[in-house]
Design a protein around this nucleic acid. Structure first.
Lengths: 190, 190
DNA sequence: TAGATTGTTAATCGATTAACAATC
DNA sequence: TAGATTGTTAATCGATTAACAATC
């Protein structure tokens, strides 16, 4: 009845999983399939969007207005998933006041005020690794609930604040390791 | 004798693991500890650097000279881990020829030549998601052994080419999901 | 020596997969 | 109806943890 459907096998192929895994995972979500037809795609989208939180707005602040911070602030696709960069701050007086898209770089010492008045939920760390923890501490004090850590430094936070690490360098290292493994395996076989 | 040591418990604390896991993992590497003293830090560094491949040079090309591509090319810390950005290319004639640090943006149609003459092993995808796969195909044909995919699109490649995905957006979604989970759990409890 | 810490084997745990009765 | 596909239970697998004899 109406709506486009996909069965667990098709979904599994698209994601590189087994049909079993797909059905097992869906059983934990408000997603019901129909025998002989599969899963309604619209329903899947809604359930997954709700689970991940794409469907709600999540105001964010970018800390650090270097190349990385500015690049991130200018990315428009974040908005599509509910992430709103409402402020960008830096410590460098030479950078404070500069325009970044529709925002102006503000003084990092105003971070707490900014976070409170603009309902900031997420802090994005784009500072040098050496100041990652101190910047994180300011975010934590300012009451953010989540931190995306783009530095290479490990950041500690109380349990109520979630930290996700996404340093490009660590992905590169994963790649390096995988390439290395292949080479070693080949060598060993030879 | 000599050298600074750390026992499995200290290492586990630092990494958020259990001492068992640390010892188990080390047993698969050329890292031997000494009862009552623990593991030699220098030896650990060497073994891990070798495993990950930090100790060898890995020439790379950045594909896409937008904000992200330029930012990445300018990052100096990649060098510390053996990643050498030897070229940056784009399709846009308006961008080709521009300076990015010590490099000049080159024409993407020269990608295969560039990759071969400069021994490129790694391709870094910093193009719009819509052209991710076609750019990846060019890299694959050019003979790279690994691709770091910074776009949000999924990229397919033959098994001999390793693909690692690192879209900032997916990390943000992980964060959003974690924050959501907390909220849902709290609501359910109430 | 006594005590601490390794390396390894066995136990536990969770996640992935297989299997199959229920059902459209 | 016959056949395909779900939802779920049971089996498998790998990874994490516990335990403990070996050893410095």
């Amino acid at each position: 009845m109406g709506g486009v459907h996909a069965d667990s096998n098709a979904i599994a192929c698209a994601l590189g999983l087994t049909p079993s895994t797909v059905r097992q995972d869906f059983s934990h979500l408000p997603i019901r399939g129909a025998p002989k037809r599969g899963y309604n795609i619209r329903q899947m989208e809604r359930a997954l969007a709700g689970k991940v939180g794409i469907d709600s707005e999540k105001p964010a602040i970018v800390v650090g207005a270097g190349n990385l911070g500015r690049t991130l602030t200018l990315r428009t696709d974040l908005r599509r998933y509910g992430f709103l960069v409402r402020a960008i701050v830096d410590v460098d007086p030479a950078i404070i006041g500069a325009r970044v898209g529709s925002l102006t770089v503000e003084d990092m010492s105003d971070l707490a005020d900014i976070a409170r008045t603009r309902d900031i939920e997420i802090g994005i760390l784009a500072v040098p690794s050496s100041s990652a923890q101190s910047a994180a501490n300011m975010l934590i004090l300012a009451g953010v609930r989540g931190i995306l850590n783009l530095t290479f430094a490990r950041v500690v936070a109380p349990r109520r604040v979630f930290v996700v690490n996404d340093a490009v360098i660590s992905s590169l290292l994963t790649l390096s390791w995988a390439m290395n493994r292949r080479r070693n395996a080949t060598t060993a076989r030879a």
